[in-house]
Nucleic acid binder design. Structure first.
Lengths: 235, 235
DNA sequence: CGATCAGTTGACAATACTCAAATACTGTGG
DNA sequence: CCACAGTATTTGAGTATTGTCAACTGATCG
């Protein structure tokens, strides 16, 4: 929690009510949430928490993006999740274990909403709708993690990359065009590989007519082949 | 849900109250749970559900064990979780997505408790304590999955195996002795590798004086070295 | 008792990582 | 606004862990 500044501003309530985590939560309880919330700012590259840190609460991203990742003893990282505005992270420590199971670092200058554990648990205890939203959010994440395990174990890097490109295509819905939303180094870390390997495989996909690359902008040339690659997981 | 038989027996209430999922739930609500629960039997190797199946509820294991796993198009499997008596599986489909994200098969003849989605959600809505238990359970699983992703991505097979052996040692608390609770083929699938590789690495660990192997019974000879291997992830 | 399955071992192939170097970018301070 | 330092990206050469294929043994189960 280095380099963070507490802000005192703006009506949080509306923003909170617009997040999927708190969608449908009644006004009264929304006020309760905003009452216990603290908005903090943190700079690009700032450490938000580290694995093992006591988890006295969790965060929502208001602006910017955050990466949640595991770190190996020799410094290699595996990104578990890139958190975008409106999403939350760190809830796991609130409901089990009391310590963060991973590291979190700001990818950009961020504005975060911090919700302290005890107060938040008290609110959840009195609001089943909120609890169900949380259960849905955690279930959703579990689903994502299962897919990630599946990919890491049963697909080779080209397959994982292809799946990610298709995912970005859907998400961005801009025809054949898409942009990688991470640096290639970070993308490698998300896909469970290293920059060199990612670079080579991107070239290969271009050479073989799957895609066309201009920096971080990709044009999907053969979606069919890309989908096959993502499906079976290997060239 | 092939090969399952509904039983009409026994007071479930006590058993339910003893599971960690429903620990601390008040008697009244416990009766509600037992009212909606169905006990089913299924035989070893029976399919309980497959990926994509509609998730109309979830299960607790009363007797036997169940494996939850992902399957690649060419038939390779990655075990996500081995469910033991008292534990639950399939909750994800109840709270998000409505379909099972993985496959589940009985490892042994099993007795399962099935809880139908709609009735169960209704109960959760009226019982915050139950909701908090569920949040804890899902959070716990998220933690396990994060560790698994970490292991698959940042550790080599020897490191994953070493970590697993240490885990079994702690769990079984029988001095230096431990037994693999799965066939070596299944263990390979749990560790994200194949039987041949697992076999070779077990031999290597024995040859190098880490462990001694007699079938599925392992004696830990050098816990220190095993712990180092698990920590740094590579030989 | 035969057949299927689990486990082991060998030879080989291949994906992916390591190390190294060259080039392109980025952001910052002068 | 430019120069510089520090990153990011790409490419090459070599290595290595792990997967594939195949054969063989031993165990398990009808």
């Amino acid at each position: 929690m280095v380099n963070m500044v507490v802000d005192k501003d703006s009506p949080l309530v509306e923003w909170l009510g617009a997040t999927s985590l708190f969608a449908g939560v009644e006004g009264e309880h929304l006020w309760g949430l905003s009452g216990i919330a603290m908005v903090v700012s943190c700079k690009r590259r700032a450490n938000i928490f580290s694995e093992g840190d006591p988890g006295n609460g969790f965060y929502l991203v208001k602006e910017g993006r955050v990466k949640v990742f595991m770190l190996s003893p020799d410094g290699k990282e595996q990104i578990l999740h890139v958190i975008e505005p409106g999403e939350s992270f760190g809830e796991v420590a609130v409901f089990a274990g009391q310590s963060f199971p991973a590291h979190a670092v700001a990818l950009e200058n961020c504005r975060l909403v911090f919700l302290p554990r005890e107060d938040f648990v008290a609110l959840v205890s009195g609001n089943p709708a909120l609890a169900l939203n949380l259960l849905a959010a955690l279930s959703q994440r579990l689903r994502q993690f299962a897919k990630m395990i599946d990919a890491l174990s049963l697909k080779e890097v080209p397959g994982r990359l292809a799946a990610h490109l298709l995912y970005l295509g859907e998400k961005q819905a801009a025809g054949n065009r898409l942009h990688l939303e991470l640096s290639k180094t970070q993308l490698a870390s998300l896909l469970g590989t290293i920059p060199e390997t990612l670079s080579r495989i991107l070239s290969r996909l271009q050479r073989d007519g799957f895609i066309s690359i201009e920096g971080a902008e990709i044009t999907v040339i053969d979606q069919q082949k890309l989908a096959e690659l993502a499906e079976i997981g290997k060239f």
